[in-house]
C-alpha cells in the first residue's frame, strides 16, 4: 500500500513501514491514533525511514508525520493485521 502525503509516502512491508521523505526533515514520527505514545526514526541517506509497526490490533490507524506546523506532512496507515 502506498500513500502519498504531498512530499512523503509510505509502503507497508511485513512488520515495518518504509517512509520516503521528500522534504529535508531528518526524522519521521509515528504514533497510534488516539494514543500518546510516539516514536521517532531518523531518515537515512536514501531518504527513507524504516519504522517498526507497533504491536497493535488489526484495523488500528497509524499516524506518520514529518515536521511541525505549516511544514507538517501526515499520512495514515491502517494496520491490516498485527505484525508477526
Amino acid at each position: 500500500m502506498i500513500q502519498d502525503g504531498e512530499g512523503i509516502r509510505a509502503v507497508q512491508q511485513g512488520g515495518s513501514v518504509s517512509v520516503e521523505v521528500g522534504p529535508n526533515d531528518s526524522s519521521v514520527e509515528i504514533s497510534t491514533a488516539g494514543n500518546n505514545d510516539t516514536t521517532s526514526t531518523r531518515v537515512e541517506p536514501n531518504k527513507t525511514a524504516t519504522v517498526p509497526i507497533p504491536d497493535v490490533p488489526g484495523g488500528t490507524l497509524l499516524l506518520i508525520t514529518v515536521g511541525k506546523g505549516s511544514r507538517r506532512r501526515t499520512i495514515l496507515v491502517e494496520v491490516i493485521a498485527p505484525p508477526p
Binding site: S31, G34, N35, N36, L63
Partner: peptide, 17 residues
C-alpha cells in the same frame, strides 16, 4: 507544547521544539 490541529494528532500531545 504546541498542539497539533490535524485530525487524530491530538492524543499525541503538543510538540515543543
Amino acid at each position: 507544547f504546541e498542539p497539533e490541529s490535524a485530525l487524530g494528532l491530538g492524543a499525541r500531545g503538543g510538540r515543543a521544539e
